[in-house]
């Protein structure tokens, strides 16, 4: 791995825990909150944005075509997407890893777990993609990740029109929400199951409490 990148990455990670004394300005970048809600439409659109842009370089090696029904894609849509791939094949980047390695000096990371692999991962992804800026003429960098190799694929830094910018903002949030799902596809099942388990335990504990109180009432 390239030495400067490594150093930059170290600096970035240091800045994330915001305790380093020698971190660069990026330490001051505050993660931005997502205002879109998690719903089928946003997840679905987030997927298509991923599919059209991010997927040029980034794999989702733990997501199979068949999983996409969870973000609201129909069987027909999945069949169109996968072409000759099987339903249990995983989503691979369009660019072969060797080509990507040549272009960026590094294989772009898999995104399946990105939303979990950073603190506040969903917000991190959203902030990262909207933190590009023009450093000097036609040279771009990222406030959150100085020296990032990924280009500003959403063209956030060069979009002037506030309406267009707002649209990009929305699409980036949808991608972040989609990647949050990709990292934690059982979230909805987990949360709905939790309601039942905890409600049950509360009933049981309450019964145990009354039983305990009655048994102990036998003692003076």
């Amino acid at each position: 791995m390239n030495m400067t990148l490594r150093i930059r990455l170290v600096i970035l990670l240091l800045s994330l825990v915001s305790v380093s004394t020698n971190a660069s300005a990026s330490a001051d970048v505050e993660l931005r909150d997502i205002y879109l809600e998690v719903n089928a439409q946003n997840l679905r659109e987030g997927f298509y944005t991923y599919n059209n842009l991010c997927r040029l370089c980034h794999n989702l090696k733990y997501i199979k075509y068949s999983n996409l029904s969870d973000v609201g894609l129909s069987k027909h849509e999945i069949d169109v997407l996968r072409g000759t791939n099987g339903v249990s094949d995983t989503l691979a980047a369009s660019m072969p890893p060797s080509v990507a390695n040549q272009a960026f000096g590094k294989v772009p990371p898999d995104l399946s777990l990105m939303a979990k692999a950073r603190k506040n991962g969903t917000h991190y992804i959203y902030t990262l993609l909207t933190s590009y800026y023009e450093k000097s003429e036609a040279v771009y960098d990222n406030h959150l990740f100085q020296g990032i190799r990924m280009p500003d694929i959403f063209e956030y830094s060069v979009t002037e029109n506030p309406k267009d910018k707002e649209l990009i903002d929305k699409r980036v949030q949808q991608v972040a929400l989609f990647l949050e799902w990709a990292a934690d596809p059982k979230r909805d099942e987990r949360k709905s199951m939790g309601v039942f388990v905890i409600a049950y335990l509360m009933v049981l504990t309450l019964l145990l409490f009354f039983l305990k109180r009655r048994i102990w009432a036998n003692l003076q």
């Binding site: 199951m193 939790g194 039983l211």
Partner: peptide
């Protein structure tokens, strides 16, 4: 006396534990 008290303790513990799990 202590079987029921321990079980009651289990109940309270499991509620907190599963709040984190879920």
């Amino acid at each position: 006396y202590y079987t029921i008290k321990d079980f009651f303790g289990f109940g309270v513990f499991l509620i907190i534990y599963f709040v984190f799990v879920f």
